[in-house]
């Protein structure tokens, strides 16, 4: 693999009068012990758009994504510096309640992780914990979120079967339904289709396309075709930095940085 300059960077500008920014990082750095894994990434994410984060494995795209809703806080010895601006608050500060924040910035993981509970309980578990006990509202919530996740038709007859009995693709869509039942502002997806077969993958992709009317979506993917198919913007990560960030179309047709060009044309990764 070639060594590319980490100073050769292109980050697109947003017109902040017409383009609403849902969440934005400023000089975000992640440390594992003394080792700096993410070197000062500043990226704005536009509301109601899908943004892809691409790059080779180990480029830091997943670490970056997991920092946005502070999932890295749970890993011993991890430190995150810099700002994450969301609704005019820096959510990477101690006075922000991370639990409340995560209700609005949801996440779907690489491996489907439904709870060992029924489909119904998988979706209603968290809302119930947060005080929603109205049976009718919960029923509606289950139906709406399962419909949005394109799973309703397949499971509506038996909502009380275990979430663990679903196939990989169905389980992942259950996880998406579980996340959107919380009605978050932003949905973070960490390679949601990497463990799935091609047919399930395309169903998940269709699901995401319909969700962007209501949610801001940031998705990490190692599948460049997927990024090209579904996203509005794409950021290319290399060695813990975002080297290029632009409209997806431009990234895949006229990249401005050599590293991006080599990566999207399949020279490494």
């Amino acid at each position: 693999m070639d060594n590319y300059s980490l100073d050769d960077i292109f980050i697109r500008d947003f017109d902040r009068k017409t383009q609403e920014i849902a969440v934005e990082t400023e000089d975000l750095r992640v440390f594992y012990g003394d080792n700096e894994a993410i070197h000062g990434v500043s990226l704005p994410f536009e509301r109601y758009k899908i943004t892809s984060l691409i790059g080779a494995s180990g480029s830091g795209k997943s670490t970056f994504l997991r920092s946005i809703n502070r999932m890295n806080d749970n890993i011993d010895g991890t430190r995150v510096t810099g700002k994450i601006m969301y609704r005019d608050v820096d959510i990477n500060s101690d006075n922000v309640d991370i639990y409340e924040m995560r209700k609005h910035i949801g996440m779907v993981f690489q491996r489907p992780n439904p709870f060992a509970k029924s489909i119904y309980d998988n979706i209603t578990f968290a809302p119930k914990r947060f005080g929603e006990h109205d049976k009718q509202k919960l029923d509606e919530m289950v139906e709406t979120s399962l419909k949005q996740a394109a799973l309703w038709d397949q499971v509506k007859d038996d909502l009380h079967q275990s979430g663990l009995s679903l196939s990989g693709g169905q389980a992942q869509r259950l996880c998406i339904a579980r996340a959107i039942a919380m009605q978050p502002d932003i949905l973070l997806l960490d390679e949601p289709a990497s463990a799935l077969d091609p047919i399930s993958t395309s169903t998940v992709e269709e699901t995401l396309m319909t969700l962007k009317d209501q949610y801001t979506i940031i998705i990490v993917t190692h599948n460049m075709q997927q990024a090209a198919r579904i996203s509005d913007y794409t950021a290319f990560f290399y060695s813990g930095k975002a080297l290029e960030y632009d409209e997806t179309r431009k990234i895949f047709t006229r990249p401005k940085i050599k590293a991006t060009e080599d990566y999207v044309s399949g020279h490494f990764g």
Binding site: M71, Y99, R102, K103, G106, F109, P114, F115, C175, A179
Partner: peptide, 11 residues
């Protein structure tokens, strides 16, 4: 991942 699932929902 089971714990992450709960945490990501704000629990």
């Amino acid at each position: 991942t089971q714990r992450e699932a709960g945490l990501a929902l704000g629990l």
